[in-house]
Design a binder for these strands. Structure first.
Lengths: 353, 353
DNA sequence: CAAGAACGAAAAATCGATTTATCGATTAGA
DNA sequence: TCTAATCGATAAATCGATTTTTCGTTCTTG
């Protein structure tokens, strides 16, 4: 009977206190490592904790303090490798500091983003890592500002006047892609992307354009973007190729664009890199096992996550001062999907590494 | 000053009460929709709630009840599409019921899995959706049992004597793959997988073997598995091909195996499906844009998630009775990576759809 | 030896809600 | 008319911790 009861209800701090013959306050102090406890009593508390298998209730523990030991994370999606890794990293980092990470997906919707933020505000999270759907000027960031929440913005942001930001150095990476493509002799390059109204996309675009034109002013750069989803992008691309445009290389500013480009190449029977070269922003595991392997810009997920958490906890602990805007360097992987133009179309598939 | 204070401290139920000229208990009742409140007072409460922009603190609200409105989800990883989608689905489902989902990654470690579970127990979660690293007999499930937690096991499980289970019907899907491959005339098939000690893997293996042998008793089925990680699998596969084994088709029991197989094919310059056919368990977006598109078994993520949550909440609400073991049907996508054997090796790369 | 500092621990207040017990006023029944 | 039942609302207990306040000893020190 007693056993069953013990199995049912978790022991509280008072159970430990009575078993140890001290008050609840003393138990709390021992567990918090406060020195003003007689060693003898401390030992008895520890024994009782051991015997009852007592563990503090984080929810009750968080009740009293204004900032709870919870960190919120909002990602546009969980399905991609990038955000999946990001959540994993953030989770580990929060855990290391004794915090619990609550992650939610905005599913690429700004309305949902704001709702999630409101829920997290209800939970009185100590801080939020927000990867906005569009950019730092969305309603979510405004909500955070209006409610005095502490947070860090990552990924699709450049800089903000209220929050620290951390993102990949898109412009530098794009410039490197430009050097690679122009260096290979490409003179007509197509860039595809989802505009998202995002400063990041513009940075990628301008980073590329500036560098490419600096290297070769006569270069032709076409741009196809879509405001909303990937499907319009797909049809625009189809139209573009349909009316006879023949760039020798395509640079996709985002992963989904890379998939779209590949599937359009498929439709037309074009092979990389003989018929056309391809580079994509964002790496994925499959890109190195396909034939050809796809050249990609690798975003420094770990660095972004770690830097974001550092900045966030600095603010959580009360640091003041103007917000910082960090850019973490990317790595550009040159793989088989990039070659020199003019090898002639359909020159056979025998190009191995 | 007062404004700043108001901006700093969130209004509590007592603030609402005093603004409405009633007691906190009345506010609580109005918000809970209890009928024993004078309409006039209810209106005043609602007005005060509106004016102060009051929102219930879920943490305080959950304090009193034994089961909090939190659902825990433990996945082996977040990086793959399958588990990413799974978390997204579970999150939405929990949200619909007014619960908060706390997701954590066990990072393929049983030790971590148990630790996470202990943390969730500390949080007094109402229930847990656990996708175990190995199977239903691991230490995590034992912990749940020992502590009387309510939960549902998904994915790498078949059935359990304590918890409801939901997983894809691996055996049936594998049988379908067998019909596909045998029907195409394959007589020497290699199966690769990570054993994981998992009943699911065995189900996939046996489902295939049974069906294949039933259709053609003379068929040769080789099996390569690795207990721990993918790297041993890769070297085993390399050895296998190295010593001259030439199956005409490979069936990978898991996504990572599909990637390994593809990269080995690459190394040897083999093309699908002319040199060898390939089918993988688990679909991914990229599989339909590569050349060739990779045939795959699609797991019914939404159905698994939805069924798991239904079962879980039934238990949370107190349903008793023997645990059920659900198997959700998969879909097998026959794509270009599967062909008939004997088209001869290296017959050129011109095989388009 | 008495007054005060120092120490350790218990008692009580607190966090923000929910729920139970209590209480006052109105209405019904005898 | 007096008691009992009913209704609506408030006060108080509760959840499980933490933190502040209070209190009783012991140890100094003048």
């Amino acid at each position: 009977m007693a056993q069953q009861e013990a199995r049912q209800r978790r022991p509280s701090i008072h159970d430990v206190a009575s078993h140890a013959g001290v008050s609840a306050a003393t138990v709390s102090k021992v567990l918090a490592g406060v020195a003003t406890v007689k060693p003898e009593n401390a030992q008895r508390v520890l024994d009782a904790v051991e015997r009852l298998a007592y563990r503090v209730d984080p929810l009750a523990s968080d009740m009293r303090r204004a900032k709870r030991r919870i960190i919120g994370a909002i990602m546009p999606e969980f399905e991609s490798e990038f955000f999946g890794q990001m959540v994993t990293e953030l989770e580990g980092l929060a855990e290391q500091r004794g915090y619990t990470l609550v992650a939610a997906s905005s599913r690429e919707s700004e309305a949902r983003e704001k709702e999630i933020l409101a829920r997290m505000h209800d939970w009185r999270v100590a801080g939020v890592v927000l990867a906005p759907v569009r950019n730092e000027h969305g309603p979510a960031a405004a909500f955070m500002k209006a409610n005095g929440m502490t947070g860090v913005l990552i990924d699709r942001v450049l800089s903000d006047d209220a929050f620290d930001t951390v993102s990949a150095d898109s412009a530098a990476a794009s410039a490197q892609v430009a050097r690679m493509l122009v260096g290979k002799g490409h003179k007509h390059i197509l860039i595809i992307g989802l505009a998202e109204g995002a400063a990041t996309v513009r940075a990628r675009l301008e980073g590329f354009r500036t560098q490419a034109l600096a290297l070769d002013p006569s270069i032709r750069i076409d741009v196809i973007t879509s405001e909303v989803s990937v499907e319009p992008l797909r049809s625009s691309l189809r139209d573009y190729f349909g009316r006879g445009e023949r760039p020798t290389a395509v640079y996709s500013l985002l992963l989904k664009g890379t998939l779209v480009a590949l599937s359009e190449f498929r439709r037309r029977g074009w092979h990389c890199p003989n018929d056309i070269s391809l580079v994509g922003f964002d790496d994925a595991e499959w890109m190195q096992v396909t034939w050809p392997a796809i050249a990609a810009v690798v975003q420094p997920v770990r660095q972004i996550a770690s830097e974001a958490m550092n900045l966030l906890f600095r603010r959580v602990e009360g640091a003041v001062g103007p917000p910082t805007a960090r850019l973490e360097p990317c790595q550009v992987l040159e793989r088989e999907s990039v070659g020199s133009p003019g090898n002639g179309p359909h020159s056979g598939g025998g190009d191995r590494q």
